[in-house]
Nucleic acid binder design. Structure first.
Lengths: 347, 347
DNA sequence: ACACTATTCCAAAGCGCTTTGAATTACTGT
DNA sequence: ACAGTAATTCAAAGCGCTTTGGAATAGTGT
C-alpha cells in the first residue's frame, strides 16, 4: 500500500489540535499533557506520519547529517579501512537519528568540500580522516566553525580539538620489543605514508624500541608508501634482497602484510619460521572468516578495531553537536598484541 | 575569513532585483537577460552566496541526494568492494551536484530504510546493492515509487527495472574454458554466496563450460560462502585435501583468491605451476600497486572495474530521476580476461 | 467564592528557497 | 507615432516544519 504523504497540518487537523501541540508532543517537549502526547503519537504512528527533514532543517538550522570526506589517493585508490570505519559510525548515527553524507575527494582537496558543507549548511559536523602531521583542515574547520572530530591526530595543538587515536607509538614500540625479545636485531619497518601522522608515530615507536635496546637504526630497513598489498609484496622482496637482510618484518597494515607473506612464499621463506612478521591490524571485517577468526590467528599483530573507533568517533561528534561549548574530548586507545603464527609462539 | 551567511533575499536586495529574477538567473532559466544573469552570477560569486539545500528541497520536493543502503552481513562484515563502487558513484554525483547518503543495514533489513527514505523524502533515488535471485526490495521500490537502479540483477522480470550487471555467466564460462583448454578437467569453483544472483550466474557459466566439454560436474568441487580471504584459505585447504583433488581453482573474488594462494603456499604448492588459479577481479583499487599494476599481473583473472560500474550506475539513476518516464536501462558489461602468472602463459 | 499560579494549548511569524500569474519595459512593423 | 508582440522583471503564495508570545483552561490555597 502506497501511504499517502501526510504532513503536520493534516495530522493536527485530524486530531483537532494545533500544529504547535502536535509538533511538541512528537518532539518530547514538556508542555504537553501525557494524555494528548499518547494520543498524538498513536495517530502519527497509525497514519505513518514522518516529518520532512528538509522542512525541519529549514526551521531549525540543523540538518541531522554528518559529513565524511574520504580522501582518494593517487590512482583513485580508496582505502578499504574506511568501509569498516563507516560501518561503525553508521551504527552510532542510526541510534541517534543522524544521516551520513559521503563525499570523496582527491587527497589534499578536502577543504573545498568542507567549505561547501559549511556555507550551504549541508551537515551539522564532519569527521576528519587521515590527519597529516601538519593538518590545514583542522584550522579551516575551526575557522568556519563546523564541529568536527578527528580520527587520529595531527602533530601539534592536539588539545585544542576532539580526536580519537590509537596509541601508535606505544603499539609499535611494544611490537618491536616483542621481536627483539625473540632475538631479532635486524627488523624492517614497512610503514605507511609518513606524511600521515599515524605513520610517523609508529616509526617513532619502532625507533624508540630499537634505541632502548641499543640497536642502531638502519635506514635501509625502513620504507614508506600507501598501504597496498602490492606495496607490501614489493617492499618485502626488496628488503630480503638486501645483503644482510632483516630477519623480522613489521607491517603498518594487514594489506601490505598479506603482500609480504606472498613475497615470502615466493622466495621459499616461511613466515614465523624463517622470517618473523608482525603487522598492525585494524581488524578489518572482510579479512575475518565467516565463522569467527582463525584460531590461532595467522598473523601476530598489534590490533585495534577500526569499526569500534568509527562508532566512538561518531558518538563524540554527536555529543559535541548537541553541546557545542563542551570541552574537546581526546581518547587514546591502546592496541592489543595478538599472538599468531608469524612469530615464535610464546609459552 | 568567516563569510557571513548570505541568503537570496539579501543578495537580491543588494542587486536591486527581485528574488525571482536572481533565482532564475542562477538556475539558468531563459527568461532573464544575459546581462543581468552575468551581473547576478558575479555578485553571487563575490559574496559567496550558496543556496540552502533544505530550502530548495522544501520548495521543489527534490533533495538532490541519492541513498545507498549497504548490507552488512553476519559478523558485521562489510564488503570492501563497496568502497570502490562508491568512489565511482561519487564521481558521477559530484559532477551532477548530488550528494550521497549512506546507511548500513543488516542484510535483509534494507527494506525499512527504503521505506524511511521514501516516506520522509530523504533522497531522490537509491541504488540497490547485492540483489538476490528473488529480490523483494525491487518490488518494494516499485510500489513506493522510489527511483532506483540495481547493481546486478535479480532472477526474473529483469526488463522491468534499470540495472547494470557484468555478464557473469559468460565471464565464468570463458574462464572455465581457459582452464579446460590448458588441460584441466578437475576444476573447483570457490563461489560467493549463492543466495546472491551473481553467484548463481557464475556457477551456471562454470557448469555450462564443463558441460560443453563433456566434463561431469562434481559437487565436491563447488563451495559457496561470503567472499572473505579466510574463506578462500579454508576452502582451498579443503579442496586440496580431497582425494583426487582439483588441479585448478576458480575464485569468485580476489579476496578469497588471495586466501587461496596463501593456502597453496602453506601446502608447498606453486600457483600457476602445481595448481592453476583464476579469479574474478573487481579491480579493487587497494590491491593495485602505487605505481600501476604488476606487469604481468599476478593473478590470471576475469576482470571488470567495479569503480566504473559505480559511476555508470549513478549516472543511470540521475538520468532516471531527471526523466522518470523514460524506459528502464539495462547494461550488460563483458568482463576481460587478463593473463597473469597463476595459469600457464599462453603464447 | 476569589485571586493567583500552573498547566495546556494555540495563532502566527518565520526559515530560504521556487514558481505562478501579472506587470512592466523594450522592440517590431506600419 | 502607435498598436502589438516579445523580452524582462516582479509581488506574493507556498513548501512543512519550529517556536515565540499569548490566551485559555485547570488547579491551588484562603
Amino acid at each position: 500500500m502506497t501511504s499517502a504523504p501526510i504532513n503536520l497540518k493534516k495530522l493536527s487537523e485530524m486530531l483537532g489540535l494545533s500544529q504547535t501541540t502536535v509538533s511538541r508532543a512528537l518532539n518530547g517537549f514538556p508542555e504537553v499533557s501525557e494524555k494528548t502526547r499518547v494520543r498524538v503519537r498513536e495517530a502519527a504512528e497509525a497514519l505513518n506520519y514522518r516529518p520532512s527533514p528538509s522542512a525541519a532543517s529549514l526551521a531549525t538550522g540543523k540538518t541531522r547529517a554528518i559529513g565524511h570526506v574520504i580522501p582518494v589517493s593517487e590512482h583513485r585508490m580508496i582505502n578499504p579501512h574506511f568501509s569498516d570505519f563507516l560501518a561503525g559510525a553508521s551504527e552510532a548515527y542510526a541510534a541517534a537519528g543522524y544521516d551520513m553524507l559521503l563525499r570523496m575527494a582527491n587527497a589534499g582537496e578536502e577543504e573545498g568540500i568542507y567549505r561547501d558543507f559549511a556555507s550551504r549548511r549541508r551537515v551539522d559536523g564532519v569527521v576528519v580522516h587521515g590527519p597529516k602531521t601538519i593538518e590545514p583542515r583542522i584550522d579551516l574547520l575551526k575557522s568556519i566553525d563546523l564541529p568536527f572530530v578527528v580520527h587520529g591526530r595531527s602533530g601539534s595543538d592536539t588539545d585544542t580539538y576532539s580526536w580519537l587515536d590509537v596509541n601508535n607509538l606505544n603499539a609499535f614500540q611494544q611490537g618491536t620489543q616483542l621481536l627483539i625479545d625473540q632475538g631479532h636485531s635486524q627488523i624492517a619497518l614497512i610503514n605507511g605514508l609518513e606524511s600521515m601522522n599515524f605513520a610517523l608515530r609508529r616509526r617513532a615507536g619502532f625507533e624508540a624500541a630499537l634505541e632502548a635496546n641499543n640497536i642502531a637504526s638502519d635506514a635501509r630497513y625502513i620504507c614508506s608508501a600507501d598501504m597496498t598489498e602490492t606495496y607490501g609484496h614489493n617492499a618485502t622482496l626488496a628488503q630480503l634482497n638486501l645483503n644482510n637482510p632483516p630477519t623480522a618484518l613489521m607491517f603498518a597494515s594487514i594489506l601490505p602484510a598479506m603482500g609480504g607473506v606472498r613475497a615470502l612464499n615466493e622466495l621459499g621463506l616461511r613466515p614465523g619460521k624463517d622470517v618473523a612478521v608482525i603487522t598492525y591490524d585494524d581488524e578489518l571485517s572482510f579479512l575475518q572468516s565467516p565463522n569467527g577468526r582463525d584460531t590461532p590467528p595467522f598473523f601476530t599483530s598489534i590490533s585495534s578495531s577500526i569499526q569500534a573507533a568509527g562508532k566512538r568517533v561518531a558518538e563524540m561528534l554527536i555529543q559535541q553537536i548537541d553541546d557545542p561549548k563542551q570541552d574537546a574530548i581526546n581518547e587514546l586507545w591502546e592496541a592489543d598484541i595478538v599472538h599468531g603464527k608469524t612469530t615464535l609462539s610464546t609459552n
